[in-house]
Nucleic acid binder design. Structure first.
Length: 488
RNA sequence: CGGGGUGUGGCUCAGCCCGGUAGAGCACCUCGUUCGGGACGAGGGGGUCGGAGGUUCAAAUCCUCUCACCCCGACCA
């Protein structure tokens, strides 16, 4: 049990915050609602970013960059869009400060008021579609497949490290297509990319689905999402992909000449994942001793700890082993610190979630073995140094796989089929997780359920079978089950 | 925006009720002994007590105002 991390059973929320801070992922900053992402946290994010970037490029996308500031008038071009974001926008009104005549530091210079106020982007659809107007004239200019890595600002009233911060890092893909079919195909393709990333890299099982009207992105025709389940039974939206129809094309007058020389509005998609994924990673896998990072995303996959400390003969063997591991592509750290004692280091690396720890002491030297400790299960074993590289690569694969399996078993065990309102409420309060239940399809009923239980429809799963039934709340007829949960 | 809480060395906090020379543990520095699951001893450095004003011979402590942050709720990725 860690000395400095609150246990999950004591206070799940505090456990999460302790973990994020004590493991050096992020910390609070001087600015309310904004966090400092620390080097270790950023290293994990970089691994996520680099992997996703490769996946985007493999599916034909290129990167570009658009301005941080958006003219205020742009936002109101799309009615639903402004409605959705207006309440959380940071606004730039002036461009200069001056010395306070009363000597109280600097003040905003009232002379320097902007002609048109600028908002700090909460998302970039508007500035991008304003630009696309100039880039698209013909069907030959389509599809336009662009991604941007950026920071955005949403002035949230309440924030939580990584899960909801006033400023966050993300990527936003914005694509333009000649037909609705092609745009929908793109929307689904990127949803698949996200699901693959979540499951194969983050070891995080997700449900792919479509949002109900209440949860739909402001300005979208359809919002697809991947939904994950955290260890406390609450759901977390881990990524979204929107089919925007012709809404933004019409708002920004983006038309193109078709093959048969008619004019049509462009079809659009947008899709994004954010540093929120860091929060998902922590909450899905970690334990009371600290982080558990899946091998594929771990900045260091293996740490070698010379015991009792890095004596010359141990150091020599350690660096030889490290070289062998690096030769097969394993990210290795050798602990050359000679101040801390082994026990302290063990606890420390467990807190950081490094998947595999190798302990190397005089005993091992004599036996030609090394102590292999895996973070996820805490199992320790003596393994021959001979052939270690192959053993470790197999072990890392096994850890990656078993982390996913464990999370999936938990998730599957927490999808409960429910047919009565009493069961529904009971399950929410005792077991949590996803609840698969019938719903009459109306926003009113969804709102009512949310008011009464705080549960929302997380999604309508894509592979949902048609099934006749009755709404859990109103008893009206329903054609399929949807997934409810309390969510972050 | 409503409710609750907290501001005192880098961190966690005590001291405040009842005003009188700013403390502890951890961390840090030096030396020594240690080292296969969070070591120990000795010595040492470091704080205008969130800010402003007031009361007083005297304020971390009492009064007024103010700022910031955290937690819970409404809003959201």
């Amino acid at each position: 049990m860690s000395k400095e991390i609150t246990s999950r059973a004591t206070d799940y929320s505090q456990w999460y915050i302790d973990l994020v801070r004590k493991a050096g992922l992020a910390d609070y900053s001087a600015v309310k609602g904004c966090m400092v992402i620390k080097p270790y946290g950023f290293a994990i994010w970089e691994n996520m970013r680099d992997t996703l970037d490769r996946m985007f490029k493999d599916t034909g996308h290129v990167n570009a960059y658009f301005p941080l500031f958006i003219p205020k008038s742009f936002l109101s071009r799309e009615a639903a869009h402004v409605e959705g974001f207006a309440k959380e926008c940071a606004v730039v009104t002036h461009y200069r400060l001056k010395n306070d005549p009363n000597g109280a530091g600097v003040v905003v210079d009232p002379e320097a008021k902007l002609e048109e106020e600028l908002i700090v982007r909460p998302t970039s659809e508007t500035i991008i579609w304003n630009t696309y107007k100039d880039w698209i004239q013909s069907y030959r200019d389509l599809p336009l497949l662009i991604n941007q890595w950026a920071n955005v600002v949403r002035w949230e009233m309440r924030t939580r490290l990584f899960l909801r911060t006033a400023e966050f890092l993300w990527q936003e893909g914005h694509t333009a297509h000649a037909t609705a079919e092609e745009a929908i195909e793109e929307t689904r393709r990127m949803l698949d990319v996200y699901a693959t990333f979540a499951e194969e890299w983050m070891a995080l099982p997700v449900v792919k689905g479509v949002k109900s009207a209440n949860e739909r992105f402001a300005g979208a025709e359809d919002t697809y999402c991947i939904e994950a389940l955290m260890q406390d039974g609450k759901a977390l939206q881990a990524g979204t992909s929107h089919f925007l129809g012709q809404n933004f094309a019409k708002a920004f007058d983006v038309q193109f000449s078709t093959k048969d020389n008619t004019l049509d509005y462009v079809w659009a998609t947008s899709w994004g994942v954010s540093t929120r994924l860091m929060g998902a990673l922590v909450m899905a896998h970690s334990d009371d001793d600290g982080l558990i990072i899946p091998p594929k995303l771990a900045p260091h996959q293996v740490v070698i700890v010379p015991i009792p400390k890095p004596l010359p003969e141990l150091q020599e063997v350690a660096s030889r082993i490290a070289d062998e591991l690096r030769a097969v592509g394993v990210r290795v750290k050798i602990d050359n610190d000679d101040q801390s004692r082994p026990g302290f280091k063990f606890a420390e690396y467990e807190k950081l979630g490094i998947p595999v720890r190798l302990g190397l002491g005089a005993r091992d030297l004599a036996n030609g073995t090394i102590e292999v400790a895996r973070r996820d299960t805490k199992e320790k074993s003596q393994v021959p140094v001979e052939g270690l590289a192959a053993y470790i690569t197999a072990l890392l694969d096994d850890i990656q796989r078993s982390m996913f399996e464990r999370a999936k078993a938990y998730r599957d065990d927490h999808i409960t089929r429910v047919d009565t309102w009493e069961e529904f409420v009971e399950t929410l309060d005792t077991k949590g997780g996803f609840i698969s239940a019938h719903w009459d399809g109306t926003p009113e009923t969804e709102d009512r359920i949310k008011d009464e239980t705080k549960a929302t429809i997380r999604c309508i799963p894509l592979d949902n079978p048609a099934e006749a039934g009755h709404c859990i709340r109103t008893g009206k007829p329903s054609t399929q089950r949807v997934l409810f949960a309390r969510a972050y």
